[in-house]
Write a protein that binds this DNA or RNA. Structure first.
Lengths: 206, 206
DNA sequence: GACTGTGAAGCCATTCACAGCT
DNA sequence: AGCTGTGAATGGCTTCACAGTC
């Protein structure tokens, strides 16, 4: 069955919220309570979950721990993922430090850059390699995800190397549209575009 | 008329692409060419633009410069916007260095943090202030946009201060759902959620 | 009584296909 | 002939409302 992308996105948010609840000692939860926690609606929570099975009990609700485990499995984050970051500039460095990745079991295995002064140094205990080593590293360490944090002009070149090396997914932070073949998954996080949607809404005070 | 959010998002991307074309010396462009440049379809480009007026010439196409000017105006980025960043950690620091903001005339006027060691220092020529000064600063300098780059646990607290100070829009990077009143615009950029959509698609090899 | 699961309805966005202009 | 602008058709997502279960 075709699952809306928006549903997948929300599942990730539900999962994080459920973890929070569990840490607070909450063991049972209703779709309405989840909805409240994530600024959604109870019908949507139920519909999102219903795509994948029946995880709750009618009249009762959901068990926090079990539901989170189910979602975690759906999202494919019950096991670990090996990640590399391309670009050791400010953004690449910040992403390498970002604690949220390790918490969700995304392991940053290497950073790549073309700046001689950075190669060989460490960022948050992760070694910085030359871009020329990237192809080899990805193949030898079975890296599945590449995060692109280089200037727009270099982005497509970097992406091409990642793809040739057999990467499966790309998360692009460069402010440009990148081209990837069918079989490679990719998403772009565009900081300026996000700001410009805000200004649009301000100017056209919706 | 109600404009799809996806349309606004794409307008920002068209604008960047048009600027690129102009710098390459291209003066005229068709909807098909724009579509190719941004991985879209020509019908969608035309429909997106048609929401706002008739900017092209039938049988001919669009004038690059003029079209970009129109889009720029629609997005409200023909004038400058004053921005503050909350959080002087790795992410806040990277955002303060980010060149893409200034290029699009978003001016970062201040960074706020609660770490005594950071207050008074400069990040990329921008002064770091105490969070306790934030309310005042926003009011006195007529700041319209606040970027939140603090840990999840502090995010809502920071957001509340921003709102009380009269901020109009918030771009949130904290990995948590934030609550804001109706009249304040906000968007969240969630790094982990983006990665988890990738893993979902890998595991469920769509 | 409370809450889930779900078909149906409603709403929104994208794509189609063609009339209209140059 | 080439390309825009746009109503109509399609497809996809969200909301509604209620039957089913505890």
């Amino acid at each position: 069955m075709k699952i809306p992308e928006a549903t997948v996105l929300r599942l990730s948010i539900y999962s994080r919220y459920l973890k929070q609840l569990w840490e607070k000692g909450v063991t049972n939860v209703s779709s309405g309570e989840i909805a409240e926690g994530v600024n959604g609606t109870s019908a949507q929570v139920r519909k999102d979950l219903a795509y994948f099975g029946e995880f709750g009990t009618r009249g009762v609700g959901y068990k926090v721990r079990i539901l989170d485990k189910q979602i975690t499995e759906i999202l494919g984050i019950n096991n670990e993922w090996e990640v590399v970051i391309v670009g050791a500039g400010n953004l690449g460095s910040a992403l390498t430090h970002y604690k949220g990745f390790k918490e969700r079991r995304f392991n940053i295995q290497a950073v790549f850059d073309n700046d001689e002064n950075k190669i060989g140094s460490k960022i948050n205990d992760v070694l910085v390699y030359s871009i020329t080593d990237m192809d080899n590293f990805i193949k030898e360490n079975d890296i599945q995800i590449g995060i692109v944090a280089v200037p727009a002009t270099y982005a497509q070149g970097v992406v091409d190397i990642l793809i040739k090396a057999g990467i499966k997914s790309i998360l692009n932070f460069a402010p440009t549209v990148i081209s990837v073949p069918e079989h490679v998954e990719h998403r772009s996080v565009d900081l300026v575009v996000n700001l410009e949607v805000l200004t649009y809404n301000l100017v056209n005070k919706k």
